[in-house]
C-alpha cells in the first residue's frame, strides 16, 4: 500500500466503518523557520468496532503503539490509544489517536495484545489506574501500584474511587 496522506487515512476509515466513526479530526501544526508541517489525527469510534479498527489500522502499516491514556468523564471512561505510522520516512510520520468510550456500568474493553504484544504494560496500567477490565489480557496482575495503594482505589478516577484520601500533608 502506498503512503497515504492524513485525509486519505480518515477517508479510509470512514469508508470502512461509516457512521461508527463518531468523529474524525485532523490537527495540522507546523514548526521551525521553514514551517514544515505535521499531522495528528483524532478518531472517536464506537466500542463495537474497536478491535476491527485496530486491525484495519495495521493494514496501513504496522503501527508504533505508544500508550493508552484514560479520562474519567462522568458516566463513561474514555480511553485514548496513541499510535503512529510512517515512521522512518523524513517528516512523513502521522500520529493517530483513537479514543473509545466505555460506560462505567460495564467497564470492559478487548485486549489488543494479540495484534500488538507491546501493549501489555499499558493495558495492565489502565486496569489498575481506572478499574477497566481488559478482556483476554495475557497477564492481568497489577503493575505499578503493588504495595503502594490498596486495591479498589483507582488513581485516575475523579469519583469516590480516586486516591484523594491517601494523600498525606507533608508540611504539617
Amino acid at each position: 500500500m502506498k503512503n497515504l496522506s492524513s485525509e486519505e487515512i480518515v477517508q479510509y476509515f470512514n469508508d470502512k466503518f461509516k457512521e461508527k466513526i463518531k468523529d474524525a479530526r485532523i490537527e495540522k501544526r507546523s514548526a521551525g523557520s521553514k514551517k514544515k508541517e505535521f499531522f495528528n489525527i483524532w478518531f472517536k469510534i464506537d466500542k463495537s468496532i474497536f478491535k476491527e479498527a485496530i486491525n484495519h489500522l495495521c493494514e496501513i502499516q504496522f503501527p508504533h503503539f505508544a500508550v493508552i491514556s484514560g479520562n474519567d468523564i462522568g458516566e463513561n471512561i474514555e480511553l485514548v490509544y496513541h499510535f503512529s505510522v510512517y515512521y522512518g520516512v523524513r517528516l512523513k510520520e502521522i500520529s493517530i489517536n483513537i479514543s473509545v468510550e466505555v460506560p462505567k456500568s460495564n467497564l470492559k474493553i478487548e485486549s489488543i495484545c494479540d495484534i500488538i504484544p507491546g501493549a501489555l504494560i499499558s493495558e495492565r496500567e489502565i486496569q489498575e489506574m481506572l478499574g477497566v477490565t481488559v478482556e483476554g489480557i495475557p497477564d492481568n496482575r497489577r503493575i505499578f501500584l503493588i504495595g503502594n495503594i490498596p486495591e479498589g482505589v483507582y488513581p485516575w478516577r475523579k469519583d469516590e474511587k480516586g486516591p484523594q484520601k491517601l494523600v498525606r500533608d507533608m508540611y504539617e
Binding site: N148, Q164, V167, M170, Y171
Partner: peptide, 15 residues
C-alpha cells in the same frame, strides 16, 4: 528532606 515537588502525592510516605 521535605517532599519537594512531590509534596501532595498519594504514594509518598513522608519526608
Amino acid at each position: 528532606a521535605t517532599g519537594g515537588v512531590f509534596h501532595e502525592s498519594y504514594s509518598v510516605a513522608g519526608p
